[in-house]
Design a protein around this nucleic acid. Structure first.
Length: 275
DNA sequence: AAGATTACCTGAAGGC
DNA sequence: TGCCTTCAGGTAATCT
């Protein structure tokens, strides 16, 4: 389940191995992952050189140069199960949806559940799928973040997952950040004082940075560009630890449902909000 | 208007 | 063994 730390690791891999190479082939094994179509992506990008790889929230932005018309971009969202495997030893398996060839180096876009998308974006056009996306969670400062979240009445868990407030947090790191900030997932942003907001902002950024350093979290499907799993899993304090003792206080971790998502917390460290 | 629900998909896991 | 149901989570669209 790629969230910001996993996507950041993918971005670093693509950047290190593919920038400066020419996109020599675009093969669709499942055409549905290309927007608007494999044909359009091929027509616009084939033959051009990958100039940069950026990340914004959970999006990857591949920018291609050469050609008089100015740069063009391929925006990638891995959604739930997407991965990029660079120069894999094996041929594409049944879950590989696209192969991008970079001067003989194949990049397999693999995605079990077909939710991921590779979207062609013309330069200067703000793509529709980015229109509602807020600032990247690693870039946003306490003041701006507070302005965007502090008036919300929805549960904290839902607010953290709202990509319009700040982008990059998913289910795993939302739970982990709330634990580290000692805040209950059902507490409301509008009820937090300045100190609690500061603590949460710090906890979110801290857990994201730590996870990046550990190569992300792997449950079933996340792999880095070499096919290696991330090893942040052993650092998790609450996520998928239902019934196990809290590492801080020993209380059994509980699982509830918030905003339609499974939510893990420690009742001892994260006391219920009043009401 | 914001919160909740469903659709999009596939595969793993659990129940019987 | 095997069929059936449930669950997993990111996001857009649809409903309340």
């Amino acid at each position: 389940m790629p969230e910001l730390p996993e996507v950041e690791n993918v971005a670093r891999g693509l950047r290190g191995l593919l920038v400066g190479r020419r996109l020599t082939g675009v093969r669709a094994l499942w055409s549905g992952c290309f927007e608007p179509s494999p044909r359009a992506v091929r027509a616009k990008l084939a033959g051009r050189t990958l100039e940069s790889v950026h990340r914004h929230g959970k999006y990857l932005i591949l920018t291609f140069g050469d050609e008089g018309s100015g740069p063009a971009h391929l925006m990638v969202h891995l959604r739930m199960t997407g991965q990029f495997l660079i120069d894999p030893a094996e041929k594409p398996d049944r879950q590989v949806r696209a192969v991008l060839d970079f001067d003989g180096v194949p990049a397999h876009f693999r995605d079990q559940r077909k939710f991921g998308r590779l979207t062609l974006v013309e330069d200067g056009v703000r793509p529709a799928c980015m229109a509602h996306i807020g600032p990247d969670m690693l870039e946003i400062g306490l003041r701006e973040w507070s302005e965007r979240i502090a008036h919300r009445r929805t549960p904290l868990k839902a607010a953290l997952l709202d990509q319009g407030i700040a982008s990059g947090i998913g289910n795993i790191y939302a739970d982990e950040a709330l634990f580290r900030a000692r805040l209950h997932p059902l507490a409301r942003p509008c009820d937090l004082d300045a100190e609690q907001l500061r603590r949460l902002h710090r906890a979110v950024k801290g857990v994201l940075r730590l996870a990046i350093d550990h190569g992300g979290t792997t449950f079933q499907s996340f792999r880095d560009f070499n096919g290696r799993p991330g090893n942040f899993r052993r650092k998790l304090r609450v996520f998928q630890r239902t019934g196990e003792p809290c590492k801080a206080c020993g209380t059994a971790i509980e699982k509830i449902r918030v905003a339609g998502r499974s939510t893990h917390f420690c009742p001892g460290c994260q006391p219920a909000p009043p009401g």
